[in-house]
Amino acid sequence: MKPWSVLAVWLVLLLLLALQFVAAGLPILRGAVPVIGLGMAVLVALTFMRLGSSRGLTPAFALAGVFWLCILIGLGSLDSFTRHDIGISALTGAPRIQHQSSE
């Protein structure tokens, strides 16, 4: 990368960081915070790691990583998000729901 491009990307990243702070402060934009974080990570990958200018095997591996991460998190959380029992809340004394409602 040319030195000026490095500087430009660095400035954009700092800008995104500031944007993240703004979003974190506004409850309505809270969901955008991790998205901006992911965006910054992707920007680093595309520029500093030269993923944007690579061809062939490298982007294939990078995409595969993203795909498998989605499977891990998506399919992995499927059970937790569709279960109806909630963990023991020892301090409130709330009873644990014993069975799942049948679908």
């Binding site: 993240q20 974190a24 402060g25 809270r30 991790p34 901006i36 990570a41 680093v44 990958a45």
Partner: peptide
Amino acid sequence: DMVWLVLFPTIYLVDRV
């Protein structure tokens, strides 16, 4: 660096306010 960029908002920012 990328890992930190995802870790940072998760830990410090997202639920702060």
